[in-house]
């Protein structure tokens, strides 16, 4: 295994702008994502720390993929001494191609990272095109 020597930097959380206002009093953030594609599927990885499995909603409407997560609000009796981050909800939308096999979409969450695997429909899988020589 190769070790990554890079050290992590603080990424300031981006607050969501220009969507209908939330009725909750917590901020709504745009989560950081990775999207990658392999031959058979497209994978979306979303950082959603503080969001439990049951508070994530994933919605695919036509070609619009909407991901949202609600953080658990707990009544805290603690006094804050130092605050370097704020927690809140997450919301992000993507346009995905129509060539997704909608019935085979799978999602899982582990360590605060949501992983959505969108399998490509047969027609969208890459085909090698033979070049005929005469």
């Amino acid at each position: 295994m190769t070790m990554t020597e890079k050290s992590l930097q603080v990424q300031e959380k981006k607050e969501l702008q220009g969507r209908a206002e939330s009725t909750r009093t917590v901020p709504v953030y745009v989560p950081a994502v990775d999207i990658f594609e392999t031959t058979n599927d497209m994978t979306v990885m979303v950082d959603m720390p503080g969001v439990a499995e049951q508070s994530v909603s994933i919605d695919l409407n036509n070609d619009e993929l909407t991901i949202s997560g609600t953080m658990a609000e707990e009544a805290k009796t603690e006094t804050m001494l130092l605050q370097e981050y704020q927690s809140g909800d997450y919301y992000r939308q993507f346009n995905v191609s129509r060539a997704i096999d909608r019935n085979q979409i799978e999602a899982s969450i582990s360590n605060g990272v949501l992983k959505i695997v969108l399998p490509k429909a047969e027609i969208a899988k890459p085909r090698k095109i033979d070049i005929k020589t005469t």
């Binding site: 020597e5 890079k6 992590l8 950081a32 994502v33 990775d34 990658f36 950082d47």
Partner: peptide, 11 residues
């Protein structure tokens, strides 16, 4: 192949 890579990795 990556379309987006916003999630940082490292120590």
């Amino acid at each position: 192949s990556y379309h987006r890579r916003e999630r940082q990795t490292g120590r």
